[in-house]
Computed example of a mutant assay.
Amino acid sequence: MLKTLKKILGGFGTLDGATYPLKALITFIKNPGLFKYIAIPILVNIIVAIALYSGLLYFGWQIVDGVQSDLTLWLNQLIANLPQWLGFLSYIVSGLIALIRLCLIVILLIATGFLLTQFGVLLGAPWYGQLSEQLEKLRTGKVELVELNIISDLGRAILYELKKLVLIAVVGIPLLFINLFPGVGTLVSTVGSFTLTTTIVCLDFLDSYLERRRLPFRRKLAIVFKNLPATGSFGLVCLGLISIPLVNLITIPLCVASGTLFICDRVSRPVK
C-alpha cells in the first residue's frame, strides 16, 4: 500500500525522471575527478556549435522573418477588408503574430539543439563512454562491459545512427502528411513530432550505458517505452536543456551523465 502511494505521489516516476540532470550535477560536484571526462566533449560541442549556429541558426532566422512578414501581410490585407468597427482585431492580430514568431523561434532553437546533440554525442562518444563507466562504478560498484573489436564497434555505431534515421522517417513522414490537414492534423503532427524528438533525445542520453551491453536497437527502444512516464519526463527535461544556446555546451555532457544514472537506478536496479 505504501509503495503504491509513493508511486502515485511521484507520478509513477514522472517527477523522479525529470530530476536526473540535477542528480548528475550533484554527482559531478561531489566527484570533481569526473570533470576530466567532459573537457574534450565540451570542446567538441563548441566547435560543432559554432558551425551550426553560424549556419543553421542564421538561415533559420531568415526563414522565421520571412514567415512573419508573409503572415503579417496576409492578415493585414484580411483586416483591411473588414468593417471599421472591427478595427480592434488589429491588436489581436499583432499579438497572434508575436506568438507565432515566438513559437517558430522555439522550434528553431529545439531543432538546432537537437542537431548539436546528435553530432556532439557521436563525436564525443569515446569520452562519454569512459564517463559512463565511471558513473556506473560509483553507482553500482561494478562495470559490465561486452568487448568488441574496433570494426564491430564502428559498425554498430553506424547502424545505430541509420536505425534512428529509419525511425525518424517511418514516424516523421506520415506526420508531415497529417500536417496537411489544418486544425486537428496540425495539432497531431506537432505533438507527434515533439514526442518523436523527445524519444530520440532520450535514446541518445541513455545509450552510453545501453551500448556498453551491446543491446539491439529494438531493446533500447523497448527500455524507453517500458519505463514511461519516467523516461518521458527525463527526455523532455533534457530536450529543454539542450535547446538553450551556449548553456547546451555544458548540459549535453550533463544529460549523458544523467542517462547513465537513470539506467543504474531505474532499470538495472529497479526502484523499490
Rank of each mutant, 00 (worst) to 15 (best):
V67G: 10
V67Q: 04
L71H: 09
T72P: 02
T72G: 02
L73K: 13
L75H: 01
N76M: 06
N76F: 03
L78K: 09
I79P: 05
N81Y: 04
P83D: 01
Q84F: 00
W85C: 00
W85P: 07
G87E: 03
L89V: 10
S90M: 07
S90T: 13
Y91H: 06
Y91D: 05
Y91A: 04
I92N: 01
I92F: 13
I92Q: 00
V93C: 00
G95W: 13
I97V: 15
A98T: 15
L99M: 11
L104H: 10
L104Y: 05
I105E: 11
I105D: 02
V106C: 08
V106A: 09
V106I: 15
V106S: 06
I107E: 05
L108V: 05
I110C: 05
I110D: 08
T112C: 09
G113H: 14
L116F: 01
Q118D: 12
Q118K: 14
F119W: 15
V121H: 13
L122Q: 12
L123Y: 12
A125M: 14
P126E: 10
Y128E: 01
G129V: 08
G129S: 11
G129C: 03
S132W: 00
S132V: 00
Q134F: 04
Q134E: 15
K137T: 07
K137S: 12
R139S: 11
R139N: 11
G141S: 07
K142P: 04
V146M: 08
E147A: 14
L148W: 14
L148V: 15
N149R: 00
I150F: 06
S152D: 11
S152T: 09
D153Q: 14
D153C: 07
L154E: 06
R156N: 04
A157H: 12
I158C: 04
I158R: 11
I158G: 09
I158E: 01
L159P: 02
L159Y: 07
E161L: 06
L162M: 11
L165V: 15
L165K: 08
I168L: 15
A169P: 09
V171Q: 08
V171D: 05
G172H: 07
I173W: 01
I173V: 12
L176H: 13
I178N: 02
N179M: 15
F181P: 12
T186L: 11
L187A: 15
L187S: 10
S189H: 03
G192W: 08
F194N: 11
T195Q: 04
L196Y: 11
T197H: 04
T198H: 06
T199W: 13
C202L: 02
C202M: 13
L206N: 15
D207C: 02
